[in-house]
Write a protein that binds this DNA or RNA. Structure first.
Length: 556
RNA sequence: UGCCCGAUAGUAUAAAGGUAGUACAACUGGUUUUGGUCCAGUUUGUCUAGGUUCGAAUCCUGGUCGGGCAACCA
């Protein structure tokens, strides 16, 4: 181990376990999603942790679907989860399902019954809740708690054989109805559900509860470090109890704080609501914090992995600044994304002294961060250009390094121009800007000796192509939507999507392959959307560039 | 009112009884054919009250604050 890097608490535990030879120094983790929804950035944290720790210590990680509740689970979710884990860059050792262990779990339950540690209870859900007591009052036994082992064995078998309807009976552990830990007050082990399962079909009509499936699945796989989130801390004594009573492999559960992030939500239930009620278009809507949403938005696996590394792992509640995620994608894309020019809010600029009908092909480097510019592309230039409307001001303030009467700017990769005049339409809106250019200032061959403060991007009018550009912003207007008063949906940002149609793009962008990230110079990072076609290009904005000018001008 | 977790700059995360450090954010300046990047620098912190100790973010006790637990969900 390097002496420099400090360890998080899980790394410390694992290093100690390796040192003391626990499990023969073996490390086996698991990522255990329930296939009842799409993975989000919070799952990414767990994935990076489980797979990352195993990698770090020469171990392996299983992908295990925690599919014990057939009413909510679907194959569609299984597939999306596998896709997302792979996309993030991780390979699991074995693909497993809790449902693979149904037979084994059933025999575990039989063992508990034989040890008089489990019983069949005919009470209704309400009766069971009522007899559990409260945190300050002990629970009381139902009349079924004293059934004989033989009767329990028989009834449990009948439950399995389908003799009883949903809700008629449950199997409960016999532990301690007075325990200060509510999870130990005779928790449910099995419930009857005449529901088809996405893998086992109609083989079963009783299904194990989470607590009776998870730890035992860990034990069956001989997981050495079972890592989950904080809310499972009170379950740990139960987890250990089953392992003790069944005398199976002693997996151990460790808990860390789940990820929260500003301006978004992380609850699957709430995300599902956003989809179902049409606040977003789908699970992979680029505004969603889902892995698939981030992918469609233009985030790279590398940037997400880096993010998970930076946020760290600890046991205290956290609310990570969305800005950190944005920093991670900017940092990645700055080094890799090719630069292109696109004008999103166009106004025409006419170069009065450039010959009518003349055009030339200029060269622009793909990425100034890379040696040799990572190659270059040709950019057609002509007398009429599109530029951004806000790159001109009729009455420019001090320190406005763009266009205004008498001001000069560099047209990126082209010439320096000086603004001479502008034209207004009959409504008084500026519709045209007139400039003269300095022929000796051509990019790369500048002999003019003139230095200007500002450089702006542009697209030649006769060569411009068009595209739809979708500008995404944060989904919520407040940092922590779920802690605000009222319904979280009241805080949705009404301007989270702004559609620019058409935007003018330089011709080279017509060749953009799907999934390739670009930087539109001065505007941000963009990627082709999956709905894009060659006839109708659609770009998604991943993130803006940092904009200190915008900050300055809004602050004053 | 019971049990269980937690508390270090704005946000995260280190410091294992001995200099409170790092990243992001913010701010200043420099470089720059992107008001981007890059570089240099600045500001901001141990929840509280006691105790142990030569010395406490760290150990002990009390308090405060935040979170979790009483689903036939996971």
């Amino acid at each position: 181990m390097s002496e420099e890097k400090s360890l998080n608490f899980l790394e410390e535990i694992i290093e100690k376990d390796i040192e003391t030879g626990k499990h023969g120094g073996r490390v086996l983790t698991r990522f255990p999603p329930e296939p009842n929804g799409y993975l989000h950035i919070g799952h990414a944290k767990s994935i990076c942790l489980n797979f990352g720790l195993a990698q770090q210590y020469g171990g392996k990680t299983n992908l295990r679907f925690d599919d014990t509740n057939p009413s909510t689970e679907e194959v569609e979710y299984v597939n999306s989860i596998k896709m997302d884990v792979n996309w993030l860059g991780f390979q699991w050792d074995q693909e497993l399902y809790s449902s693979d262990y149904f037979e084994q779990l059933y025999s575990f339950a039989v063992i508990l019954i034989q040890k008089d540690l489990a019983y069949v209870d005919d009470s209704t859900a309400e009766e069971i809740a009522a007899t559990k007591g409260s945190p300050t009052e002990p629970g009381i036994p139902t009349i079924y708690r004293s059934r004989s082992i033989e009767e329990n064995l028989k009834l449990f078998e009948e439950m399995r054989s389908g003799k009883y309807p949903d809700g008629a009976k449950v199997l409960r552990a016999k532990i301690d109805l007075a325990s200060p830990n509510m999870h130990l007050r005779d928790p449910l082990l099995y419930r009857i559900k005449h529901v088809a399962h996405h893998r086992t079909g109609s083989d079963w009509c009783i299904y194990p509860m989470y607590d009776f499936a998870h730890g035992q699945s860990d034990a069956i796989e001989e997981i050495t470090h079972s890592i989950c989130t904080l809310e499972f801390i009170p379950h740990r004594p139960l987890y250990d109890w089953f392992i003790d009573q069944l005398a199976i492999f002693p997996s151990h559960q460790y808990e860390f704080a789940r990820l929260n992030m500003t301006y978004t939500i992380m609850s699957k239930r709430k995300l599902l609501q956003l989809v179902n009620e049409g606040h977003v278009t789908s699970w992979d809507d680029p505004r969603m914090p889902t892995i698939s949403g981030l992918r469609r938005r233009g985030y790279t696996p590398k940037s997400i992995r880096h993010f998970c590394e930076l946020i760290g792992v600890a046991k205290r509640e956290n609310n990570i600044d969305m800005g950190l995620l944005e920093y991670c994608i900017r940092e990645d894309l700055n080094k890799s994304a090719w630069r292109r020019m696109a004008v999103l809010d166009p106004i025409k600029l006419i170069i009065t002294n450039y010959p009518e009908g003349q055009e030339e092909l200029l060269q622009g480097e793909n990425n100034p961060e890379v040696e040799d510019g990572d190659g270059s592309r040709s950019i057609p230039f002509s007398k009429e250009l599109w530029i951004e409307r806000d790159d001109f001001m009729e009455n420019p303030p001090k320190k406005f390094f763009r266009l205004g009467i008498g001001l000069m700017v560099r047209l990126k990769s082209a010439y320096i121009v000086k603004c001479e005049d502008f034209v207004k339409d009959k409504n008084g809106n500026i519709c045209e800007i007139k400039c003269s250019y300095i022929p000796e200032s051509k990019s790369g061959h500048d002999t003019s000796g003139i230095h200007v403060k500002g450089t702006i991007h542009w697209v030649s009018v006769p060569h411009a192509q068009t595209a739809e550009v979708r500008l995404y912003d944060r989904l919520f207007q407040v940092e922590d939507p779920s802690s605000e008063e009222g319904d979280f949906k009241e805080y949705i940002n009404p301007n989270s999507l702004q559609i620019v149609k058409p935007a003018y793009i330089e011709p080279d962008l017509m060749n953009a392959p799907s999934g390739k990230n670009y930087q539109f110079i001065r505007k941000g990072y963009f990627v082709l959307d999956k709905e894009s076609t060659p006839q109708h290009l659609i770009f998604n904005r991943t993130v803006t560039l940092k904009d200190t000018w915008a900050k300055l001008s809004t602050n004053h």
